[in-house]
Nucleic acid binder design. Structure first.
Lengths: 228, 228
DNA sequence: AAGAAAAGTTTGGCATGCCATATCCTTTTG
DNA sequence: CAAAAGGATATGGCATGCCAAACTTTTCTT
């Protein structure tokens, strides 16, 4: 009795989200093991779930080769991502929740947000296109506009750019950035790089910060001319 | 592996909420059958769940006699009710959701609201004491201030009062009231009562409405002198 | 190309959570 | 005091979701 059309549990949504994100990185099928690591469950469990997702028509699973999302699976992933990022935006902007906490909160609420409520909060926010971490918010039609950005650690010495995006998954990192006064939108210049995994020296306005590589790999930069 | 202390699923929360409300009505133990009807599940299933709730220390179950909430059970019920009513208030006031829809939405979200978020929305609303239907909101310390009110259908002809509370569970009713322009806070006077379950004629300002008994039983009135 | 290693799948098992039916027991009531 | 009503219990079922271990397929290494 699969009720109606789609059987969407939080787990199903989490799988499609994970597959979507891993599939976007390198444009090829996602191996079971990669998914298992991402979701922190055993490959065996993942295998079982992939079977279900396949039956639900959300993925195409070629045994021993990996999975891809079907258009329907992609739709669900984008819907949940839209929920997640709208919620993050809402919590931060309207309720003033610190940006290192919004992710965990949204992770729960994303599975429960009704279409009605989604629309109300999107309207309240003026239909934003990016969330507090700079991640693009899919439109109601599930179009996702990924801007061209470069990882901070990949910029050469002397390069300039604007800090426009950062991974939302590590609260520590976000808290650290906030403490250092480094916020999205900041103009920056690469000053110096220490070898052997040493810090990257980056100038933001007057201040120069020594940033570890975990951090610079999580930060993304838009290159090109500064705004003014 | 009961994880930690409390095992709080949505079902457990719904049971405690239901018991709380039934127990408040007539101050005596709630029979299994009454609960079963309220929750729309079979008495057999309810019995099984009551056993669990007893083991969890949330209720005192005297077989064949009924159940009462323990202080801990009461605490949980009030916490969930607080969530529910704060959410209803928030959805209506901040997001402009119509008052006949907030209940259904809150019914889901109440189980998922974190303490952090609860505090933020309470603050945003200025720590309200009643929700959009006039139901009192328990304080953070789980104190519930039930105002003295009278059911509209129990008022005698010629009585006056203020419409201050209405059951939130029937969207149709709420929509009807909204359409008729009857809102909380309205001063009213009982004009006439037709016999045999006929309508009650109630004057609100200039307008007199003929209200059916299902409606007048759901509406509650605060008596005493009008504001001015 | 053989064999080992790595990746993936299958099987069996387990826990939670929720509900229904059928049957048996208790309490109340006529 | 017996029948009816209400309640409890036993049994069964279903779905989700996870793990461990055994087994299969693919890939890597020599």
């Amino acid at each position: 009795m699969a009720t109606n059309g789609a059987l969407r549990t939080p787990a199903v949504e989490d799988y499609t989200k994970a597959i979507f994100s891993l599939e976007s990185r390198h444009d090829e099928p996602v191996p079971t093991k990669t998914l298992a690591e991402r979701l922190e469950i055993t490959p065996g469990s993942v295998s079982a779930m992939l079977k279900r997702l396949d039956e639900l028509g959300l993925i195409t699973h070629i045994p021993y080769r990996g999975v891809r999302l079907t258009p329907e699976g992609r739709r669900i992933a984008l819907e949940v991502i839209r929920h997640h990022r709208l919620l993050e935006s809402y919590l931060a902007e309207v309720l003033g929740m610190p940006w290192d906490r919004v992710h965990a909160e949204a992770e729960v609420l994303e599975h429960v947000l009704s279409d009605d409520l989604e629309e109300l909060i999107a309207a309240k926010l003026g239909h934003p296109t990016v969330d507090p971490h700079g991640d693009p918010i899919p439109t109601v039609e599930y179009a996702l506009d990924e801007r061209e950005t470069t990882r901070l650690d990949e910029l050469p010495i002397g390069a300039t750019g604007r800090f426009v995006r950062v991974s939302d998954s590590d609260p520590e990192m976000l808290r650290y950035l906030a403490e250092q006064g480094i916020a999205l939108g900041a103009e920056l210049e690469i000053v110096e790089r220490q070898p052997f995994g040493g810090p990257l020296f980056v100038r933001f306005g007057e201040e120069t910060h020594a940033l570890g590589d975990a951090l610079t790999r999580a930060m993304r930069v838009e290159q090109g001319e500064p705004a003014a």
